[in-house]
Amino acid sequence: MEFFTIVGRYFLPFIAFFVLLNCAFSLLKGNKKTGTLGYLVNSANGDRIPLKGFETSVGRSNSCDIVLSYNTVSRFHAVLSKHKKGWYVADTNSKTGTFINTQKVDSRAEVENGDSIVFGNAVFRFVDALVEQQMPHFEPEPVPKLYIADEEFFTGDVWSDSKNSASCAIINDSTGETFLLDNFQTCLIGRSSEAQIQIDFPSVSRNHALLSRQGNRWLIEDLDSTCGTFLNSNQIYDVQKLANDDILDIGGNTLVFKSNRY
C-alpha cells in the first residue's frame, strides 16, 4: 500500500505534465487562415475584394469586414454568408436596402456566382471562388462594344469630324447600353418613361439627374434624388462639369461618360 501511494505521489505529476504537454500543442494551434472563398467585384472600378470568412459583414462602420464609405450604405448594411447549400446575403435592417439583380432582399436571399449585389448604391458582382476554381478557363462575358466608333476615335487627341459625328456618350456599365448625347441639349436620367436615359431600378428616382450641354461641355446636376448622384464616388450637390471617363453613380448603376474632346 505504502509503495503504491509513493508511486502515485511521484508519477502522477509527471504523467499529468505529459498529458497536458501533448494537448497543449493542439490547443495552442488555433484555426488555420481560411482561404479566399469568394470575391466582391466593384462594378465602378473593377476592384476585387476577397471574402476570407464564412461570414462577411458589409457596412459603413469600421467594425465591418468590408467597409463601404457611401452615404447610402448603412453602418451595418448586410452580411454575406457561406453555407453548405451556397451563399446567402442577409440584409441587416439597412435603410436603403440590399438588392440581388434588382430584386430586393427581404431578410435573406441566395446569391449565385455572377449575380450583382447592390448595397445602397454601391454595385458589386459576386464571384464564388469555388465555382471560379472549378472553371479554370472561366472568363466573364466580354462587355459589349460600348460605342460605335473605333477606339482611336475616343482615345486619340485629334477629333476628326469625318470619322464620326458623335463626340459624347453615356455608357451604362451594368447593361452595356450606350447612349449618344450629340443630338441633345439636355438629357434626363431617371426611372420615368420621359427620361431619355431610362434606368428601371428601384433605387433610381423618377427624375434622378439631368445632363445639360453648355457650349462644348456636358454638365451633370442632381434633381434631389433619393439616393443621390455620385461623380467619381463623390456625391454632387451642384452642377458639375463632366470629363472623359468620368464615372456617374445613379442609384447603384454605374454610368461612364465618354468624350473625345475633354
Binding site: 499529468a16 497536458l20 494537448c23 490547443l27 495552442l28 488555420k32 454568408s81
Partner: peptide, 30 residues
C-alpha cells in the same frame, strides 16, 4: 496531490481560455 499538480491544473484552465481565443480568430461564424 502536491503543488505541482495544482500548477498543472491552473495551466489547464489557462490553455482552455487561450484555446478559445486562438479559435476565435478565423472562426467560421461569429
Amino acid at each position: 496531490w502536491g503543488i505541482l499538480m495544482g500548477i498543472i491544473v491552473i495551466l489547464c484552465f489557462a490553455f482552455i481560455a487561450t484555446h478559445s481565443i486562438k479559435c476565435a480568430i478565423g472562426c467560421r461564424y461569429a
